[in-house]
Design a protein around this nucleic acid. Sequence first.
DNA 1: TTAAATGCAAATTTTTTGCGTGATG
DNA 2: CATCACGCAAAAAATTTGCATTTAA
Lengths: 140, 140
Amino acid sequence: MRTALKRRGTRLTPRRDKMLEVLVSSKRHPSASEIHEEVRRFHPRTSLATIYNTIELLKEAGQLLEIEFSGAANRYDGRRSHHHPHLICLHCEKIEDLDSVDHDEPLDDLSSETGYEITGRRMDYYGMCPDCQSGRTVQP
Amino acid sequence: MRTALKRRGTRLTPRRDKMLEVLVSSKRHPSASEIHEEVRRFHPRTSLATIYNTIELLKEAGQLLEIEFSGAANRYDGRRSHHHPHLICLHCEKIEDLDSVDHDEPLDDLSSETGYEITGRRMDYYGMCPDCQSGRTVQP
DNA sequence: TTAAATGCAAATTTTTTGCGTGATG
DNA sequence: CATCACGCAAAAAATTTGCATTTAA
């Protein structure tokens, strides 16, 4: 991710570096505000605008997948090494990676078939996780 | 869709009926505001809140797929008879159905594998459509 | 040094909510 | 006639933007 950013001519500031770390290490698919909180623990004067700024950069560099959430903050997946579907619990808003499922087929067929220049994809399953089914979870 | 709504004990008012018509007949995957405009042509005093209201009902009844859009209004797909991926142009924000692709496999395997009760799914491809590639389209 | 990055605060936009009135079954 | 639906307007929440200041390269 660092090299991807540098390749685009952007600077690698301490805030950005910490933010990359948060994105890569987090299993939670954090929202902008959660990323902000984490980065703030090390750089307390970081503003939310900077987070959104860097999110935009990373999206443009193809390093970050934005998972839009209706009625709530978007969530982010920085683990782009290989494509994987998501399993999203509509009750507790947890997002799990489905690494087991191979979702990484090449897109050449679809590109030539449709004429689109395809740059990304997304596959999500929605439902209720086991914890929420058994009433173990409180709604956030 | 009508029966699905009635089954949930909601009333079938003229506004709602027209809205179903708009959703089913539109090929454009309209936003709430576009749905509003269409419905208004027949019921000019319709408010946007009513549109959002009905969207919520239809989503709950599993009759409407919400396609979240980052930084823009969500879009809606009322053609739920069979699941299909979407081809989304990030430049002109057009959304096309990929009816050719079979995306309708049963979810039993995934359900038992993960313990999730899966109620929906979504598969999207992002890119640039032929028109936008050739510079024929103006950005909206 | 110099363009890029940042913080702050205000603006923008979409969606939701509360409430009084009106329509439906 | 008892709910449910509706319009209206205000509220809420997420994201974006403008601008003065700081900082990385």
